[in-house]
Design a protein around this nucleic acid. Structure first.
Lengths: 148, 148
DNA sequence: CATACCAATGCAACAAAATTGCACCTGAAT
DNA sequence: ATTCAGGTGCAATTTTGTTGCATTGGTATG
């Protein structure tokens, strides 16, 4: 997909949420969409030295509030962000999918959407959201392990 | 269950992991076992003013390494700890159960062990652990909502 | 195209959370 | 009772996240 199309997509996304199309915001979206793993705040900071730390925090916060990205904590408790595939609305994320956290490279993959079977919750609990979290070896690290 | 038995249980636990039976450690275990929800580091700090913050960090870390407790992050990214029910060994937690995070009181409940159906991971991924997270209303907060 | 407004950014200062190093204390083995 | 390594407390530091305010820059308006 050509770069221009991506840019247009992101600009429409920002428009749709009544957010101004600024450089830092478009770059954050483009960074995130160029990877197949979630991006941590520290990662972003390294990738965009020229953008202020505070600005990144604020961008990530609005994006999450608006349902543009969703947050997932890795095994170290660091927040990782990924662009929401679909169905996410303001103040209500519907990210019922599988998050895979590699124990070696620490990358977080947002994998296929799940169709979870009915889960029996004890009486009184009213679930609004489910997320399945798996940890182990991702394909890359799995290969490396075998070569040892 | 009388207090004395609990203390014995915890002392054996520490023995088993070659950890010294100290006051702070026994108190941490007793605090955790007295609740039906996971305990956050800030919680512990409030409950045990006389114990140094650093000591708490260190206790939680060893306990986790040894497989005595396991860590789960709540919706705010705060680490919560709960005593492992069973099957957890050093450096390998087997806590394949349901974590429920209440969106109102923020408590994290470690619910029944799951028997997850086979999950299809994309080729190359090798999962070692699964955890299902749910968020919503816990029984207490659910009742309060109804009364409004 | 010029103007004006307000959202967005950057900077500085601050606050909170976590880590490190070291001196001292204490549980437990002898 | 003595010894010693593990454990704790304290101080200092680093890292992470937050707040307030001045300035910048999209974008709506005419």
């Amino acid at each position: 997909m050509p770069q221009v199309q991506n840019d247009n997509r992101f600009e429409h996304l920002l428009d749709h949420h009544h957010l101004k199309k600024t450089g830092p915001r478009l770059r954050v979206l483009s960074m995130m969409s160029s990877k197949n793993t979630a991006t941590s705040q520290p990662d972003l900071e390294n990738l965009m030295h020229d953008v202020d730390r505070v600005t990144l925090y604020r961008i990530l916060n609005v994006f999450e509030e608006k349902g543009i990205i969703h947050k997932v904590f890795d095994l170290n408790g660091t927040a990782n962000y990924a662009i929401c595939s679909s169905n996410c609305e303001e103040h209500h994320h519907q990210d019922e999918h599988l998050h895979f956290n590699c124990t070696v490279c620490n990358n977080v993959y947002c994998l296929n959407d799940l169709n979870l079977p009915a889960i029996n919750l004890p009486a009184g609990f009213k679930a609004e959201n489910f997320t399945l979290y798996a940890s182990g070896l991702c394909p890359k690290c799995s290969k490396k392990e075998n070569k040892k």
